[in-house]
Every structure is written in C-alpha cells, then in structure tokens.
Amino acid sequence: MSQISNAIEKRDSGPAAVVEQYRESLALVMPSHLQQRVGAWIRNTQGLLRRDEKLMKAAQNDVGQFIAVLMDAGRLGLEPGTEQYYLVPRWNNKKKHTEVTGVRGYQGEIELMYRAGAVSSVIVEVVYSKDQFQFRPGRDERPVHDIDWDADDRGTLRLVYAYAVMKDGATSKVVVLNRGHIAKARAKSDSADKDWSPWNTDEESMWLKTGAHRLAKWVPTSAEYMREQIRAKAVVDSEQRPEPLPASVPVPAPGTVDGDYDDEPVEGELVD
C-alpha cells in the first residue's frame, strides 16, 4: 500500500503536475491571445512530457529550470515543443545531469515579427544547390528564386534568405546567408554536436531559424513596437489639440462654425 501511495505522491509532484500548479503564473506572463487558451497550452505541454522519456527525465532532474523555460515560452506567446519553441534535453556539465532548455525556432521568430504589427508578410526560404537564385543589393528590391518543383533532388543546402514586406509596402533589408555564415552560427551553439540538437535532427529548420533570427535585427519583433506607435500618436494628438478657451469666452455650439461637423470620427481611440 505504501508503494502505491509513494507512486501517487511522486506522480502528483512531477513536472506535469507542477505545470498545472503554475497555471495562474503562466497566464499572467502570456499575451492576451494565449491567456484565452492557457488550459490547452498546459495540456499540450503535459502531453509532450508523457510522449518523450528523455524530456520527462530532464524535467524531473530540475523542475525549476523546466518551469523557467515554460515561463519564457509563455512570455513570448509561443507554443513549446513545436517549431516555434523547441524543448531540448541538454546536459549541464556543472550539475552533471540533463535539464530542459528552450530554443526559439524559426516559426517563433516569424510569429514575433507578425505580432509586432509592423509587417504584412515575412519570407524566409532556403536555397539548394540546384535552385536558381539571384539578388544584387542596390539593384534588386527582392531576391528572385526559381525552383524546379519536379526535381527529385534539389541538391545540398546552399543559402538562406529572409526579408519582410512592411505594412506600407516597403521591403525591409534582405538578409542572405551562405554555408559559411551558417557554420559560424552553428559554432556558437555548445550543443550542436549532440545527437538531440536541432542542428542534427532538423538542419533545414536551423538554417531557416538563423535567417529569421538575423532578419529580426532589422524589423520590429515585439508588441512594445505597437505600444510605442500608439504612445507617439497620442503625443502628436495632444500637441495638435488647440488650447482650451478662457472661461470668459463662450464656446460656440456644434454646427455653428464652418467646418464643424458632428459626424467626424473621434481621433485617438484605438479600436481592436
């Protein structure tokens, strides 16, 4: 009987149960679009643990680290265990055990760009050796990339490029990275030589992620950008607002002055 009780106690205090215990804390850091589905977000995370023994073991080794990673994913508004945000069991040499670390994926980088509200589209593509690719900075606004979709083999990974089309139609800086650039990015990862590293399990995604990450330096990737735009507009509106008339001067009734229309929209009010 004691063995059954111990098993139940261990299960209830395990990583999956702790995630549920942190429901309110996770919801507090999440953007509004995730707060509405925090329950599904938590259930998906618990399902990941049950399906992946290595991930479960790493989470059990350091539950606090695991929750910190989930907090980071929640704060960013990304889905853990997807190409938005990888959950990776990683060896900690100081603690001598594996622990869960979070790796933002290329879809996560793109999601943050869209959510900032400044771009209408984001293009991130890899170029294989048998593809046709052309881009001349200063002459071409955007790359020209031709692919033979009927080809059984497109060759080896050659380039990755990324750019965004802004809301006003302008094109952001175009980022083009070759194999040498990717090698330098990979060298900065201290886990790239591990079997479980996304660099080895999903190389194309890591090329895409590197391109998207480099593009993020040139386009807004935070909702703070939109808040700054709103604040800036409020400042402009306040500066353009006419000074109130002295109390001794009568204020004309609406419609009695040329150009005064009751049905004009009221500026300064943000409507979702």
Rank of each mutant, 00 (worst) to 15 (best):
A40P: 00
A40S: 13
A40Q: 14
W41P: 06
W41G: 02
I42W: 03
I42C: 02
L48D: 05
L48E: 10
L48K: 14
L48Q: 11
L49V: 08
D52Y: 05
K54T: 08
L55S: 03
L55G: 01
L55T: 06
L55I: 08
M56P: 00
A58R: 06
A59V: 10
Q60V: 04
Q60A: 03
Q60I: 08
N61C: 05
N61I: 07
D62E: 02
V63P: 00
V63T: 14
G64V: 09
G64C: 01
Q65W: 00
Q65K: 14
F66V: 03
F66T: 02
A68F: 05
A68D: 15
V69P: 02
V69Q: 05
M71F: 14
D72F: 06
A73S: 15
A73K: 06
G74I: 04
G74Q: 07
R75T: 10
L76Y: 10
L76K: 14
G77L: 03
G77N: 03
L78M: 10
L78G: 06
E79R: 04
T82C: 01
E83C: 00
E83R: 13
Q84A: 08
Y85C: 01
Y86M: 00
L87G: 05
L87W: 07
V88A: 00
V88C: 03
R90T: 15
R90S: 12
W91K: 10
N92R: 12
N93Q: 13
N93R: 14
N93M: 09
K94E: 11
K96Q: 15
K96G: 01
H97I: 05
H97R: 13
E99G: 07
E99H: 01
V100I: 13
T101C: 01
T101H: 09
V103E: 05
G105C: 02
Y106W: 15
E109H: 12
E109Y: 12
I110H: 02
E111P: 00
E111H: 07
L112R: 13
L112G: 05
M113D: 06
Y114C: 07
A118Q: 12
A118N: 12
A118S: 15
V119E: 09
S120Q: 15
S121A: 12
V122P: 07
I123Y: 10
E125H: 14
E125W: 07
E125D: 13
V127Q: 06
V127P: 08
